[in-house]
């Protein structure tokens, strides 16, 4: 299997820094919630939350993890069954500004399911999308991110692999020429 590095640990750190500063520039944290889509989006949202806390130690930023399994549109249409992850939402998003966070944006269907799942926790004032990697092509729904770590051009059969170190904020992103088994 061929692979290339899209983002090494050092670049990942700089990207997290940039995204955190972009959020600081555009938002008042009294009304902002970060909500990551399980499993890796929630991890990435927590990485961002920790970085934001370093930059603004006095401000509290809500961070939740949302599982979209029950809201997916490919249930009973896939070869393999979908097993749920846990949802960690200890707050309501009613009238809040929400940044939906995911690791890779590809077809847009997970994000659609995420927005559907989000509405079960209240009606947010606004929802914006932040992704670590934006695969520009093969979008199947009219969904575009407001904040992007890195935009890449890739073809359908390729696979973006997010390799994170357990228990740390370090991460490396690879582009593989096929989906691993």
């Amino acid at each position: 299997m061929d692979s290339q590095i899209l983002m090494d640990e050092a670049l990942f750190e700089r990207v997290v820094d940039r995204l955190a500063h972009q959020l600081l520039e555009h938002h008042d944290f009294n009304h902002l919630d970060l909500i990551g889509l399980q499993p890796r989006g929630y991890w990435f949202a927590q990485v961002l939350q920790r970085r934001l806390h370093e930059l603004r130690p006095d401000e509290h930023i809500n961070c939740g993890g949302l599982d979209v399994t029950f809201h997916r549109d490919d249930f009973r249409r896939r070869e393999k069954p979908l097993n749920p992850s846990s949802t960690h939402m200890e707050f309501l998003v009613e009238n809040r500004h929400v940044i939906l966070v995911d690791d890779v944006l590809f077809t847009g269907r997970t994000i659609r399911a995420g927005m559907d799942a989000l509405l079960s926790h209240g009606r947010p004032q606004s929802v914006q999308l932040l992704v670590l990697v934006n695969r520009r092509f093969q979008r199947e729904l009219p969904i575009e991110p407001q904040y992007v770590g890195k935009t890449i051009d890739s073809i359908d059969c390729e696979y973006v692999q997010v390799l994170r170190e357990e228990g740390s904020d370090k991460c490396r992103i690879m582009l593989l020429n096929q989906k691993p088994e």
Binding site: D67, T69, F70, H71, P84, S85, S86, T87, M89, L92, A117, L119, S120, H121, G122
Partner: peptide, 13 residues
């Protein structure tokens, strides 16, 4: 996970 769902404000998926 479904127990979490039925304790949300909107208890339906």
């Amino acid at each position: 996970e479904f127990k979490e769902v039925i304790n949300r404000p909107i208890r339906k998926v």
